[in-house]
């Protein structure tokens, strides 16, 4: 494993009571990236995050953050000291006010950013005198985000940061995140099952399905390399066995044969043309299509 990456996992596995939540996950997250960790509910996103933060121990394989082993207690404390985290449930102490939450959290982080604290209290219009239990989900999310952003962290790990928020609040949170990252040198690793928000702010993406990464890479590269090749035949479409690498999925429906390729579309096209189709169309695919094709491929 290399120290070049802020987050690196190799053949990571995590079982809960015999159920494999993560099955041989290998990821590499470079510094300075906004890394979208996309997957369906129950795909293993939260479990992976818990392993990275030392909240759960891996069954096998390795997970390193800042080059430190995430499953070692002392290293894990250091990792958390350099990481901001927002959990999916936005769990905070119900019995504290927003002000108390901030005053409680700040001393744990020597690089706490008082200037950002002031800015986000103002921007988010947080009612600091109100107890956490009296805050709406949106306000709780904003407070949780403030507590993560002000840590002076090098890495931000967000687990479904916009879950349960209405579209307006989602946009507000995402904008805050993007402008924060633009002004601070940091890496963001965020999980989501909302394809649109990953598409909106991420520059790298990993699609995880049933505990395994099925697609990883720079979002621009994925957009560049993934292609849908649609072949129409006179009669029923044949059942070809493509030899070219990069074929993700082949679908046959009547006279139409659709091939999803992750790379090397030209070589696949050469093979496809040998089947004598009536027409051939090659179209780029969206992240949503990549996601839907890859996570359902094993169904």
């Amino acid at each position: 494993m290399s120290d070049r990456f802020v987050i690196e996992t190799a053949d990571l596995r995590k079982n809960y009571d015999g159920v494999e939540a993560v099955r041989g996950l290998s990821l590499q997250v470079s510094g300075g990236s906004i890394y979208g960790f996309l997957g369906r509910n129950g795909a293993g996103k939260t479990t992976t995050i818990k392993v990275l933060l030392g909240m759960a121990r891996p069954t096998s394989g390795h997970a390193r953050v800042f080059g430190l082993p995430a499953d070692a207690e002392d290293a894990s404390v250091e990792i958390r000291g350099r990481t901001g985290f927002v959990s999916e449930e936005k769990e905070l102490y119900d019995y504290m006010t927003g002000e108390e939450m901030i005053r409680f959290t700040a001393p744990f982080f020597p690089r706490w950013r008082g200037d950002l604290e002031q800015r986000y209290v103002h921007t988010f219009e947080l009612p600091l005198d109100r107890k956490v239990k009296a805050l709406s989900r949106g306000m709780r999310t904003k407070l949780a985000l403030l507590l993560a952003l002000c840590r002076g962290a090098e890495l931000l790990i967000l687990d479904e940061p916009t879950s349960g928020l209405d579209p307006a609040m989602t946009e507000e949170v995402l904008q805050a995140l993007v402008s924060h990252v633009a002004s601070e040198e940091m890496t963001v690793f965020f999980s989501s099952h909302q394809i649109a928000e990953v598409d909106q702010i991420a520059d790298h993406v990993a699609i995880i399905d049933r505990g395994r990464a099925v697609v990883t890479g720079a979002l621009d590269d994925l957009r560049e390399n993934f292609r849908r090749i649609q072949l129409v035949f006179d009669g029923d479409a044949p059942e070809p066995a493509f030899r070219a690498p990069g074929v993700v999925r082949v679908r046959r429906k009547g006279r139409v044969l659709t091939v999803l390729s992750s790379a090397g579309a030209e070589r696949i096209l050469d093979e496809a043309r040998a089947l004598n189709p009536v027409s051939v169309d090659v179209v780029p695919v969206t992240l949503k299509e990549i996601f839907l094709e890859t996570v359902t491929a094993e169904d």
Binding site: K50, G54, M55, R80, G81, E91, L92, D94, F108, A144
Partner: peptide, 17 residues
């Protein structure tokens, strides 16, 4: 439990001990 907010606590740079 409801008062736990365990994940927030565990995200702090403090050992479980």
């Amino acid at each position: 439990g409801s008062r736990g907010a365990a994940l927030f606590t565990l995200s702090l740079p403090v050992s479980r001990n």
